Computed example of a mutant assay.
Amino acid sequence: MAPDTHKIDAHSPPETHELITQAAIAKAKLPWIDLILKSFFGGVFIAIGGLFDLIVVGGSPGLRQSNPALATMISAFLFPTGFVLVILTNMELVTSNFYTMTFATLQRKTTIYDLARNWVVSYIFNIAGALFFTGVLAWWSDSLSSDAQSTYAVTQAEGRVNVNWGYNLTRGIGCNWLVGLAMYLGTSGRDNTSKIFGIWIPIWAFVALGYQHSIANYFNGPIGMFYGTNFSVGKFIWASCIPVTLGNMIGGAVFVGLSFWLLYGRGPALPNEAGAQLGGDKREDGHMNGFKKHHDDMNGDGMRQRPRGDDMA
């Protein structure tokens, strides 16, 4: 008898979007205190990835000078650590929520109020978490202890702020398009190893491509300001925070949420031929009737109905 490959293959696109919908519904049901705490830790975890990146590449001035492409690739490879922590620990990250909440709201499974509540609270407390980590666990802990590291912290911050406003808008779009795809791939995997690979590759790509993530910038900008950048708080908000956030919203809500809703969200969750091939779903009935028997093997992604409304990050 042939082995049941369904149990080890990834979920098909329709199955994955059924899980995305259930995640968004769970997000909408989160109590206020859970939403606040999950959002705070989401910001902290993203800042952890930013500091990991900064310490290594900042401490390699020779490599940056002799082989900048290799330095960029190594730097970008380290940053996804924060995203893996967010998703596998079930925290809230506003940039992934731009995708998930849009998709479910377009399906009318969540409301505009649910979407706005989630976006506003997660954005505010993601910022709070990132700033807390920046001040307490990066600046006060003297993590960037060498001159090369502190100098690079200034250089990378100025490169994010002292640029054209429109550039940061489009860089924000590109970033969250890939963040949404990382969320999709992380959801489609059935085990933690698959999820980590699925999350890691798109995030690695967006960092290497020079795209901008609004919450990460609340670490990268302030840490550079602590060491003496040539821009003010006002310019940081106007030239970086606003355009990158708007770009992230467009990238997540339009290029991922709306696009995937048009493909997979307007009718019953029926895997088509391509979806079945991609997902390894070879059941004879060709529909989602057997889906509930299998989705509980998702590891740590919050798809089960829980009394506290735990959700996918």
Rank of each mutant, 00 (worst) to 15 (best):
Q107A: 15
S75N: 10
Y184H: 09
T105Y: 10
M225D: 03
P271S: 00
T155Q: 13
A276N: 13
G309Q: 04
G174D: 08
E15N: 09
T105K: 15
A269W: 13
G221K: 05
I196P: 11
V57H: 05
H213L: 04
L78I: 04
G58D: 01
A24R: 04
T229V: 05
Y123L: 09
A116F: 14
G62P: 04
L262D: 13
S259Q: 05
G129F: 02
G42D: 03
I196M: 14
K109G: 05
G189P: 12
H6W: 03
S188C: 14
F45M: 09
L278D: 05
L181A: 11
V179N: 02
A208S: 06
E18M: 12
E92S: 09
R160D: 03
W204Y: 07
S146R: 11
H11S: 12
S188G: 13
T72F: 01
W139C: 14
G58F: 03
I201K: 12
P222G: 14
I55P: 05
T170W: 07
G50Y: 02
F40Y: 04
R190V: 07
G189A: 14
S188N: 00
R117Y: 06
A128K: 05
A138P: 09
E18D: 08
G252V: 06
W238Y: 14
V136P: 15
T110S: 12
L54C: 02
G82Y: 03
S214Q: 07
M298E: 12
N164I: 14
L258N: 12
G82H: 04
D301G: 00
H295P: 00
A130F: 01
F197L: 09
I199E: 01
P243A: 06
I203K: 09
L209K: 08
T151A: 15
A205G: 10
T187G: 12
L181F: 02
V179A: 00
P3M: 11
I223M: 07
N162Y: 09
M225N: 06
D147V: 08
N220F: 10
D297W: 02
K7D: 05
I124S: 06
G210S: 07
Y227G: 03
H287F: 05
I87Q: 01
P307L: 08
P31H: 10
L30G: 02
K195C: 05
W32S: 14
F226G: 07
G309R: 02
S214A: 15
T170G: 06
H287G: 00
A76R: 00
A208Y: 05
T16L: 02
G280S: 12
S146V: 07
L63C: 12
G59W: 01
A76G: 15
V84N: 02
H6M: 10
G257H: 00
D114P: 10
I112W: 12
I36K: 01
N299Q: 11
V233S: 13
E273C: 04
W177S: 00
P202L: 04
M303T: 07
E92H: 07
F77T: 15
H6Y: 13
A2H: 11
Y184I: 14
L137Y: 07
